[in-house]
Write a protein that binds this DNA or RNA. Structure first.
Lengths: 215, 215
DNA sequence: TCATATATGTGAAAAGGTTCACAAGAATAT
DNA sequence: ATATTCTTGTGAACCTTTTCACATATATGA
């Protein structure tokens, strides 16, 4: 299905374009040029055009891109023009915050299951979702037709839980634990390492680092 | 001060090496090879060696790298062998989670000030820190000698707050709001976009994307 | 002590990603 | 209708990053 090998950077930038287009739409823009789009996300016009060109031709010469239409196209490319059934494992600090994080829902990532191993939490209702026992992870992930699992558990147990998740047939995992996880090659695994960017800032301050671009 | 221009990717990987070395230290390893280090973070041995070579020669041929020593060196390169005075603006869902996030403290990022605009929160004690009024942001950032500011505020107000933060002389900002921010060129600005990785997973699932490597 | 195995450090090659530059199409003004 | 301006789409050039491959150094075992 992959026409050409799309780089990770391009995909990440699609997220940025989508975000910018959402805003432009709210501001009642009909069309937008690659120049304006680039400016808003601190990129170059050529980069914007090249990225989009991998997926088709969406613009009109002399005019630019139709905001609503392009936004829709990108959402379709990213697969966020639908609802994804997401389960969150670990309803601690980070986990709780993620349940309430509006941005996820807005983009179709619906958290429909919560898991924890804390007896005090299991069975209780958290933002409208009853917290399940992590002991039943595999079964309940299957029964609820979960497609994406978000891990917000301590690093020490992340691998065990991951093994369970993989056994449940889940193909996409987003891991917030600061540890690398072993998964079979057919599983999509991504990491959200929140210290990393702080460490980058630290490095930059200490070394007077000259970045190519901010962000 | 920059010997050579170090790439962002290299710096991010230093974070990974640091993490792996911390674990290796706990496991009582004396030395570690680039091969083992690479395996643990799903990289290649050559990559590890090349990255490290930008900063000096830390290894011993035939033996590998001394775990404790290399960990210390990397922490020094990243500037996390010291304490950073961090302020967090926005004590909502994400903000609260970040205050309790152990990983930050562990790496020297000490959150010493909290700000919010909610009258119910201002003056109250949150995990040992009294929440300040965001109206006094500029003054209090200066008075507390804050070096890094973390923004966990709604996208709609992020730019105004950023302007305040910049006026306070802060040179490093980590932004969790899903919006791009305008800052002068001498400010280090980084974004933590938590939807981005979910969107990547979505893209990967829909397009059967073949990644270069996981993560 | 010598041979063998191990593993670093690094130029050079290869791969990958970004920017350039321009032809071509569309809109707008005269 | 025509000229002018605007802006896309894209091959090619350029630049950056990764990987290769090997000389070099150390450790280990016989």
């Amino acid at each position: 299905m992959t026409r050409k090998r799309i780089s990770e950077s391009t995909i990440h930038r699609l997220s940025l374009y989508y975000r910018a287009l959402s805003l432009l739409e709210k501001e009642n823009y009909e069309t937008v040029s690659s120049k304006e789009l680039a400016k808003r996300e601190k990129l170059t016009p050529a980069q914007v055009r090249k990225d989009l060109s991998f997926f088709g031709t969406f613009g009109t010469r002399g005019l630019g891109y139709p905001v609503r239409e392009l936004k829709h196209q990108i959402s379709s490319i990213l697969g966020i023009d639908r609802v994804w059934r997401v389960a969150l494992v670990g309803v601690g600090n980070i986990g709780s915050a993620l349940v309430s994080y509006k941005e996820f829902a807005k983009q179709g990532f619906q958290i429909v299951k919560l898991f924890d191993n804390d007896q005090r939490k299991i069975g209780s209702n958290h933002k409208g979702i009853v917290i399940s026992d992590i002991a039943n992870l595999e079964t309940e992930l299957r029964e609820a037709n979960i497609e994406i699992v978000v891990l917000a558990v301590p690093a020490t147990v992340a691998q065990y839980i991951t093994d369970d998740v993989v056994r449940a047939g889940i193909k996409a995992i987003l891991n917030f634990a600061p540890v690398n996880l072993k998964v079979p090659p057919d599983i999509y695994l991504r990491h959200e390492n929140m210290s990393m960017e702080l460490e980058y800032l630290s490095f930059a301050l200490v070394n007077n680092h000259v970045p190519k671009r901010n962000s």
